[in-house]
């Protein structure tokens, strides 16, 4: 079948984009390949690891399991939009201070999941912080330092 492109209008980190995209493109590939926003990572590509987490119209989702065309008219926050004007977000600072990133591959997804938590619950318990990142796998840290960082960022804000 001939490739049928669709026009896609999205707002990403406050900036408007308009692009032609093949319907058979995941939102993750659209962000990384078409827009060169490579902060969002592909881990498993199956919705298990959370490395590709973004916030779509206010909801934390795995961008590997969404077609780019589904996001038409919607608003997306990615890791690139978390710190503004060259300044780190409190979560990013806390992750650096607490050693919550080792290889760093899961970190963008972890930050997005943590931001989604703090957006809804500004002072989480350690259990709530752990639950908030249950959809995000980290093979380095054992999660302790990540939970510490989330709780410390919550105090900062």
């Amino acid at each position: 079948m001939a490739e049928m492109k669709k026009r896609l209008r999205v707002t990403i980190n406050g900036e408007r984009y308009e692009k032609e995209v093949s319907p058979a493109t995941s939102l993750l590939d659209f962000l990384r390949t078409d827009l060169n926003l490579t902060g969002t990572k592909e881990g498993c590509g199956e919705g298990e690891c959370g490395a590709c987490s973004v916030i779509l119209d206010g909801r934390l989702v795995d961008s590997c399991l969404i077609l780019a065309v589904e996001a038409d008219g919607q608003e997306i926050q990615t890791i690139e939009g978390v710190g503004r004007h060259g300044r780190l977000h409190p979560l990013q600072k806390a992750f650096a201070e607490k050693g919550a990133a080792q290889c760093g591959y899961c970190t963008p997804g972890m930050i997005m999941a943590a931001k989604y938590l703090l957006d809804h619950n500004p002072s989480p318990t350690p259990e709530q912080a752990l639950e908030a990142i249950a959809g995000n796998l980290c093979r380095c840290t054992g999660y302790g330092s990540i939970v510490d960082a989330i709780l410390s960022a919550a105090k900062e804000r």
Binding site: G47, G50, S53, R59, L60, V61, D62, L65, I66, A113, Y116, A132, A134, G135, N136
Partner: peptide, 9 residues
């Protein structure tokens, strides 16, 4: 059913 990300989709 699944993680927060899955629940949201």
């Amino acid at each position: 059913v699944g993680s927060i990300q899955t629940q949201n989709r």
